[in-house]
Amino acid sequence: MTFFEVVFYAFSTLMVVAALGVVSARNPVHSVLFLVLTFFAGSAIWLLLEAEFLAITLVLVYVGAVMVLFLFVVMMLDINITRMREGLMRYAPFGIAIAILLIVQMIMVVGPENFGLQAFAAPELHGADYSNTKELGRVLYTDYVYAFELASVILLVAIVAAITLTMRRRPNTRHQIPGEQMKVMKQDRLRIVNMKSETIDSEDK
């Protein structure tokens, strides 16, 4: 076994174990952290394919942004774990049936006859000056430019939709207007009164 294969199997094992951890961890925060580990292992496998742009972007976007927000939300949830597990045995046969169905389906679609070495040759190794970023950029902005633009528009629609769903006019809420706060001058708030100093004797009178 070459060093390359050792690395591949190490990260593949890690990925499978971490993915199992996601669904089997009792605590949802642990599940999220296992998912982060899964992404890391996936990113390492992509690095072996010389796809460094995809690998680092996976870490940057999913680990660095998406999972942070996930963790943020999951951490705040007040989940009663024992109540969640109550129905586990009752639903188990149904769940197992669906899982088997999914596994069979996946083997049929991405199994060896469709994606094996006969259908796809093993990717050849490139030299040190090969830049995955450049290759990806060229394909993305030439051959697949319409699909790429379409995907970005769909994402934009999703962003706008999410914002409109959460943005409600609430007339009763108080909020600050920073522009007006900045415009406040000393004269508006402070009144300096010119008066004689008061002494204790003067109060007595």
Partner: peptide, 15 residues
């Protein structure tokens, strides 16, 4: 001497 060095730095600082 990573080709995607800037990206690597962004990914790490985000972690």
């Amino acid at each position: 001497n990573l080709n995607a060095g800037l990206l690597y730095i962004l990914a790490l600082t985000s972690m």
